[in-house]
Design a protein around this nucleic acid. Sequence first.
DNA 1: GGAGTGATGACA
DNA 2: GTCATCACTCCA
Length: 179
Amino acid sequence: MLSVEILKGDFFRRKTTAVAQELLGKFLVRKTKMQELACMITEVEAYDGFADKASHAHRGKTMRNEVMFGPPGYWYIYLVYGMHQMLNIVTGEEGYPAAILIRAVEGMSGPGRVTKLLAIDHSLNKKPAERASGLWIEDRGVVIPKHAIEKTPRIGVAYAGPEWSQKPYRFVLKVKRGN
DNA sequence: GGAGTGATGACA
DNA sequence: GTCATCACTCCA
């Protein structure tokens, strides 16, 4: 069996777009009272820095987004449209507001469905991505070739204007892995 | 194509 | 305090 490695803070303490691409093929693991569920990450989006108009951090630090300004490797979870939880992992150095939205995992498309399936809610906000918090990311040795990563503009951020909404900060795994 | 939903941030 | 907005999903 291949070694399984839990991703730590150092993995996330790098350029946001680089981390985003490498998250494809990693496994999101959710442990609840009932079960442990692991799903391969297939789609992410990067939100990178103060200048990114599509990022919550663009208007400065607030109570909601303060975790994006904190150290990497923490979850940023919030409610949008009154009913959907979004799951993000904080990246970059402490003080630099950046995060990666996990939009989809294997067998599940749409960010709101990921959190629903994995029973992720606001109580995990600001928690570190490690085994103890019940939600973490593992490297299970799946290697994603570069040509299998598709870069596209982000979704639902038209309000950020053409410059930022068209940036290729969305990364999609387009080829299913062969078993 | 359009409604639902409620926390959040801007403004007063 | 009020009001508009929103990193979405569902149903028609």
